Amino acid sequence: MTAFDATRTPPLCGPQFGSYAPDEVTWLLKDLSDVALEGDLRERERRIQSGQAHYAESLPIEYQPGPEYRQLFHETLRTSARRLAEAVGVVSELVLAERSPAPTLVSLARAGTPVGILIRRWMQTVHGIEPQHYTISIVRDRGIDTVALDHIVARHSGESIVFVDGWTGKGAIQRELTAALAEYARLPDRPRLNDELAVLADPGSCTTLYGTRDDFLIASACLNSTVSGLVSRTVLNADHIGPGEFHGAKFYRHLAEHDVSAQFLDSVSAEFEAVRDRVRDRLAAMTPESRTPTWAGWRSVEQIRLEYGLSSVNLVKPGVGETTRVLLRRVPWRVLVREGDLPEHRHIRLLAAERGVPVEVSPDLAYSCVGLIKEDA
């Protein structure tokens, strides 16, 4: 243990925190379950956009979709599980081949957590190894949780650490991670960690470690905490997080009857054996040229921002996963889709209808869909 490992908050595991099994993930978060952090959605959005508050200082009241939408989640999971398993296999094999034969997986809470568990399950099932898996917080414009990083690097070699997320949108979190790790390396005795994210889907073309670059629906993006171990988004609020403490989050125990976190994981990992040949073929077909990031997604988002007169690229959320997030926990303005009746957009059309958000067809989109947040909400 190194001198800078001075954590004042203990690591968390299920079932005391979160609904995942304790061997599948260690949450490097402070338990804020008893703290009132949720507020009115529109007032929260107004304060964030006006600069009066940062989005990580509070939590949105999690929108709980109706029974028709929840049924659609189950249908989506059933039809996409094999495709998801293939993406898990591809990115897992890339990590093992190019980063470390014995990786330490560090998921970015919270979308990265179920993906990190699936990668760990693939490595366990196919290769018989059981990587340690942590989840830590990263906050746009505030950086990564350095207390959590200290905890990890005190126990694992820096070369083994691989950061995991669910997908890329325009690449904001990849940029945030790069900047945060560069700053971390400037602290005394801290290692320089590899900043490249491993993700299931990379429609923004921001990384070489991806399962696919298709902008397709990852079922875990369809819901909030109920598909992410019943854990909230992370919180960085000076009123509740002191020096030497991990960033915080809440465990939503009251939503246990709606929890499908285990079902999502089990449905995907049940397909691992069926996709092993397909994963091998996909890897053989990849070339260094095809995997080189182009950051085309970021340029596309800048064009959309200008076209719709928005003040910030942070109000443009590209890709199926990010569009779904806008509809579930922000104040959406409109949704842009490349095709009007794509089956993978059924949940988006349903959510948009439930919330009274117009859906516009824009055939030239670089992504299959884009969510726009209402400015001056």
Rank of each mutant, 00 (worst) to 15 (best):
G143R: 11
G143A: 13
G143Q: 10
G143F: 10
G143T: 14
G143K: 13
G143L: 12
G143P: 12
I144D: 08
I144P: 11
I144N: 08
I144T: 13
I144Y: 06
I144A: 14
D145R: 11
D145K: 12
D145G: 13
D145M: 11
D145C: 09
T146P: 00
T146M: 07
T146I: 12
T146K: 11
V147G: 07
V147M: 06
V147C: 14
V147T: 15
V147R: 06
A148D: 12
A148K: 14
A148S: 13
L149H: 12
L149K: 13
L149A: 12
L149C: 11
D150G: 11
D150V: 11
D150M: 11
D150Y: 07
D150Q: 09
H151I: 02
H151G: 01
H151K: 10
H151C: 09
H151A: 10
H151L: 01
H151P: 00
I152T: 08
I152L: 08
I152C: 09
V153S: 07
V153Y: 09
V153E: 10
V153C: 07
V153N: 09
V153H: 07
V153W: 08
A154C: 07
A154V: 05
A154S: 15
A154T: 09
A154Q: 06
A154P: 01
A154E: 09
R155S: 08
R155M: 06
R155H: 14
R155L: 06
R155P: 01
H156G: 02
H156E: 14
H156M: 02
H156Y: 11
H156L: 02
S157C: 09
S157Q: 14
S157H: 12
S157V: 01
G158M: 08
G158S: 08
G158Y: 07
E159Y: 03
E159H: 14
E159V: 03
E159T: 13
S160F: 00
S160N: 13
S160C: 03
S160M: 01
S160R: 14
I161W: 03
I161M: 08
I161R: 05
I161T: 04
I161H: 04
V162L: 02
V162G: 04
V162P: 05
V162H: 03
F163Y: 06
F163H: 03
F163L: 03
F163D: 05
V164S: 05
V164T: 05
V164Y: 03
V164I: 15
D165R: 02
D165P: 01
D165W: 02
D165V: 01
D165S: 07
D165T: 01
G166K: 05
G166E: 15
G166T: 04
G166P: 00
W167Q: 11
W167P: 00
W167A: 15
T168Q: 04
T168C: 03
T168A: 06
T168S: 15
T168Y: 04
G169R: 02
G169Y: 03
G169H: 03
G169T: 04
G169P: 06
K170E: 09
K170F: 04
K170Q: 14
K170N: 10
G171W: 02
G171Y: 02
G171F: 02
G171H: 03
G171N: 07
G171P: 10
G171V: 05
A172T: 13
A172D: 14
A172F: 00
I173P: 00
I173G: 00
I173Q: 13
I173W: 00
I173V: 15
I173C: 00
I173A: 06
I173K: 00
I173T: 15
Q174P: 04
Q174T: 10
Q174G: 06
Q174F: 01
Q174I: 01
Q174S: 14
Q174M: 10
